[in-house]
Amino acid sequence: MISDRQNRILSFVAALLIFGLFIALIYYAFPARADLDFSSYYPWRNIIFKGWLLTIVVSIIVLVASIILGFLLYLLTNSKILVLKYLGAIFNEIVFGSPLVVFLVIVYYFIGVPLHINNRLIVGSIALSLYMAPYMKNVFEGAMESIDDMQYQAMTVFGFTTYQKYRYIIIPQLLKIIIPPLAGNLTFIVKGSSLLNFIGVPELYNQITTAQSNTYAVVEGYTLMLIMYLIITIPLIRLTRSLEKKVALWN
């Protein structure tokens, strides 16, 4: 008899094998396939690794900046002052309606160039953070709604001061609620950061395409790229899931 755990491991390995076989089948059945040869990328390893690190760094910067912008946007769209509310709403609609790559290029030309922000990394981070802000705003909105109205009455009648309410009750609950969706948005940011290539930020996508134009090994380049993105995103996705499960226990 095999244990539950062994069964799960075996099944997982089997699934990986089937998946690998499937890819191999497509690869060998594909008549115009290139003969995969990754060795031409070896001389580019430092540049590619730097690009990969930059992807991680940009993602973290954008995560922090978009959380702050998202919170400001939350305050704006929930403002009692109608002008501010509508300003926030208009921004949301524009972002939700725009393809990311178009938005990035527009920000580059309409904000970066006029303001003489020459550092592409900075312009790129600003652009991606602006794009992510409405998604972050939604996270805050969901979190605020999740605290039951009666809890606020309870906090009041038990005599907590405003500071104590936030410090001990509201913020700890909000943190627990927003962490899983934030981790989810981080995955989105990592993937979206590949489009910063279009405004010349030397992140992973950009560096590999640079190498590609020298090695001419296009398929290998994209394969490498996929693997290097997955190395970042799969752990993030797993982390998001486990956080979600943990949080579910609290409700």
């Binding site: 039951d148 009666m150 809890q151 009455q153 309870a154 009648v157 038990f158 009750i169 627990k176 409700n251």
Partner: peptide
């Protein structure tokens, strides 16, 4: 004073 509500006012965290 003390107050006991209908439900859901223990702090869940």
């Amino acid at each position: 004073i003390g107050f006991v509500f209908q439900a859901h006012t223990l702090f869940p965290h």
